[in-house]
Design a protein around this nucleic acid. Structure first.
Lengths: 216, 216, 216, 216
DNA sequence: TATGAATGAGATTTCATTCAT
DNA sequence: CATGAATGAAATCTCATTCAT
């Protein structure tokens, strides 16, 4: 039954397409209104399908948001992996990641990432669900940070985990966006200086000894 | 009528006590469940009073949360002012503030402060209401940062506003607390290193000139 | 114990005074806001006493309104009796009554009378309670109308009860007050013509026999 | 897609039916209990649907009542227009209208019309909403009254507006229905005599024709 | 006796979720 | 499959009434 197989894969493709569409619209609503004020009605309306159809793809509102965040995190993970594979100093690669994640700078206006750490509802609901991808993300950056330590770029005394924590903390500055708006300050200047503070903060004292350290 | 005056002040005191109790319970629920999942019913139940009684003290749910945040912010503001008036380097004073605010370290387990910057509902609802206290808080820290620049402690090239922004960003690390728990790392070590990263990140290049600046 | 008696009568008098005050304020609120939007809180506040004190005088909101309407009806009854005892034609006496009751004309801006016939809540609540005074009121006007018939002023064919009903119907025109306001028409002109229509409507065909009746 | 069209019109029809059912039940409750004591719960229960379903048709309680009154007023307006287009004297046509509106006579037991003029809550809430239909109703009757004046049927001295006002006042007699019940008097006799009083009250004098009419 | 804080039933409204068509 | 009407639990807020002081 090749027809059926074809048909099935077609259907499958259509299903994925629609799922993608739902996720996109849901993301928009989530970013605009937050978790609680995001209604299934509005999402369905934006996609142009019936509310029931959304439930064919995602059994619960929570599941939809979970899928949303997972997708976002996977894309972030890919970005991290790409950046990690780049040439240059570790700092340069981490800075690339930081700039990609910094809200208001990337093509995508806003990152959902920060939602995971801000809205307590989501945190409660999603609890452990994202552990795998989050762990992977953390591991990638951890590896970079440790490579930086090994290369003598970063201070070895600072626990890598704290470096990691601080790295992600910088992103939550998004919350201050409103405040930033009032100030007439360019986003690029902001991120430049934030990166400056962070990397100077973790930089090893004497970068010239870097070769010696390696040789050691 | 001294009796009446006494009686009135007694009632007043009882009212304040009850209000305090409501605020405490509400704070707990708010931190546990977030703004939307915090129900007036639950607050009343925790306090051990009827729902209507809560409304005798706070006309709307929003008002209750507003009072909550205001109280918190005022207490933070007082702490900041106290720390600001201390002796020692600017860094030492800012570090005191940072440690006071850092969640999981102070006596009070959690700070509501971060809620103001995280939950989009609260942000929208409270938006302008806290501007005065928030502005004051920002100004106090801004003054400290600029004093640090003037003394040659901090790098003059970094815009003070970005320093401020980054300073507060560090606090939002609270979101990672769950993650931190998994890691076997002492909170004190965490905050020590975070402070280390931040202050090294904003430190002027040659601290030995510091004395010259002072003598100037 | 003459003291106690004196004291008791004093207290009694004070109680009546306060009751009167409550009734006055309640009347004002009732006329301004209607039965449901009239809150016991507001009444107490206007009187300047505590809400509980109102309940010392009137066990339920319903009872308060009942007392209110009863008082109003008694005063109307007195007015009717006075008018009834006047000299002149029956029509003249009934017109006096009509003008007294017509809202927007008497000293008191508004009559509560119409409330009894309008707000269905009150009707339901008060159901039979006012039967005695209402019956008395109806009887007085009925007697006048029958006197008018006997004197040949009014058409004998019309059942007196329908005359009575129509007489009171005219008062409910108050509901159209808002409409009237839009029209630039004097209240006096309105009531003159309403009276004109009514009394012409019930007038006997040959008023010349009226004198004979009078001479009788 | 005739099926879909059929299906849609079917759904549409069902929706209208359901809406009609809700309106009928709501009307009953409204007449029985008044605006405030009419609860959405009771309406839903009477219709036999869930509370939420009522809100699918009417977004707010106020909207439901508004629809109710609008429907009623439109039906009254149609009746008035039909009556107005009839042959015969103006009085005959107005009497038709009066009898149609008189509560307790028409097929429908009760008219909502009077509610619009009685319950202060409704008046406030609906205030301007019905102005168009109410204005139209008033205009139709006004035209009739003026036609009657022009034809010499009615007294030209009485302001048409007062005639109009009095005309509608007669309807509010409904409030006395309860009282009427106690009296053993036929509704037909009541409305006959009320009409008699009103039209005699506004009839033009023309004594010479009067005899002819009488002799007829 | 007067008070007014406390109560809690009840009203409106929202919205995630289900299910017959 | 897709639909969207129906559901009903739950949330906020009001206010007549009670009762300890």
């Amino acid at each position: 039954m090749p027809e059926k197989a074809y048909s099935r894969s077609l259907k499958e493709r259509q299903k994925r397409q629609r799922e993608e569409l739902i996720l996109q619209c849901a993301e928009a609503v989530l970013l605009e209104k937050g978790y609680h004020d995001m209604s299934m009605d509005e999402i369905a309306a934006r996609v142009g399908i019936a509310k029931g159809t959304v439930y064919l793809h995602f059994a619960k509102k929570e599941d939809l948001v979970h899928a949303l965040l997972d997708r976002e995190m996977l894309s972030v993970l890919q970005m991290i992996e790409t950046a990690k594979a780049m040439d240059g100093t570790v700092r340069a690669r981490l800075e690339t990641i930081l700039r990609s994640l910094y809200p208001g700078l990337s093509e995508k206006r806003d990152h959902l990432l920060y939602l995971l750490f801000s809205e307590s509802d989501i945190r409660t609901a999603m609890h452990e669900k994202h552990s795998a991808v989050m762990y992977e993300m953390s591991m990638q950056v951890t590896q970079l940070l440790e490579e930086g330590k090994a290369r003598g770029e970063f201070r070895a005394e600072i626990p890598t985990r704290v470096m990691l924590l601080t790295f992600f903390s910088l992103l939550s500055a998004r919350s201050y966006k409103r405040t930033l708006k009032d100030w007439d300050i360019e986003p690029e200047v902001v991120i430049d200086n934030i990166a400056g503070i962070y990397f100077r903060g973790i930089a090893a004292d004497r970068p010239e000894r870097h070769d010696e350290d390696e040789a050691r």
